[in-house]
């Protein structure tokens, strides 16, 4: 698996898109920091970008890579390599190179700005950790969609729909259900609902870490009481891990049963 990972990673490191992605974050980091002059605000703006963009890029890259490397995959399948290693290696190659672009692209401007001197280093690290998780999760979901759909167009369609659902539609449904059910106590419901979606969960985690939960009113207080504690953080990370591991398992399972 390590060898496949290595080759996929090299292959992607040679591709133009990895650099475009990297330079995008580099520019974003520099612009936000040096125009804003306030690290805390820069982190919030970055969060808003990362929460939407990272899943989108992860999904598109994952689906694209899977379909583009089909021939290569077929070549590998005839070699003495375990099937699941081929697909997991490719998946990790994509996910790692995307994570690297994200972490380096944002990390470099922040380090140059003097991040280690400021006390937002934890907020910033949390931002990068959730960004990395979102990359791992959405790339895994994309691979799952791609392996289940022989038709490229369908695969792309489902992948974009999935992103749209989790990034936009889910929130809409969530808000609507809050309005419809406003006569009932909704603390637990909203807590659970925002934990089930990795994008919402990441957003909540970062927002509460930034101590602006006072803006969120009563629900914010409930959230703060839960997510603010070590237990809340632990549960959140556990759920992000689950979101990562379950699709990976399904990928390995599917890979072992597919005809090529």
């Amino acid at each position: 698996m390590i060898k496949i990972l290595k080759y996929s990673f090299y292959d992607l490191m040679r591709s133009r898109w990895s650099y475009v992605y990297f330079i995008f974050y580099l520019l974003l980091g520099f612009v936000l920091l040096f125009l804003n002059n306030d690290v805390s605000k820069a982190v919030i703006t970055l969060m808003n970008v990362i929460i939407v963009l990272v899943p989108l890029i992860g999904t598109i890259f994952g689906v694209m890579y899977y379909y583009n490397s089909r021939e290569f995959t077929e070549l590998l399948l005839a070699q003495p390599i375990k099937r699941s290693s081929i697909f997991l290696g490719q998946y990790l190659g994509v996910a790692f190179s995307l994570t690297l672009s994200l972490v380096l692209g944002l990390g470099i401007p922040f380090v140059l700005y003097g991040l280690f001197g400021s006390n937002v280093i934890w907020d910033f690290s949390l931002l990068l950790v959730t960004g990395a998780f979102l990359t791992l999760i959405f790339t895994a979901l994309a691979f799952n969609i791609a392996i289940s759909n022989e038709n490229k167009i369908k695969g792309f369609g489902y992948a974009v729909l999935l992103w749209l659902f989790l990034a936009v539609i889910y929130d809409g449904l969530f808000l609507m259900s809050l309005i419809i059910l406003e006569d009932y106590p909704l603390d637990t419901f909203s807590l659970v609902a925002s934990m089930l979606n990795p994008i919402d969960l990441s957003r909540t985690l970062i927002l509460l870490k930034l101590d602006i939960s006072a803006l969120l009113g009563y629900t914010g207080a409930v959230f703060k009481k839960f997510f603010g504690t070590d237990f809340g953080l632990f549960v959140s990370i556990a759920i992000l891990l689950l979101w990562t591991i379950l699709p990976i398992f399904r990928l390995a399972y599917k890979a072992n049963r597919k005809d090529f």
């Binding site: 040679r14 021939e71 290569f72 077929e74 070549l75 005839a78 003495p80 390599i81 375990k82 099937r83």
Partner: peptide
């Protein structure tokens, strides 16, 4: 046992390889 493939040399029908190698 996937390791038996060590003993097989396979020539696929359509020679499609990763193009940027």
């Amino acid at each position: 046992k996937w390791k038996y493939r060590k003993e097989i040399n396979y020539l696929p029908q359509i020679a499609n390889f990763p193009g940027n190698l």
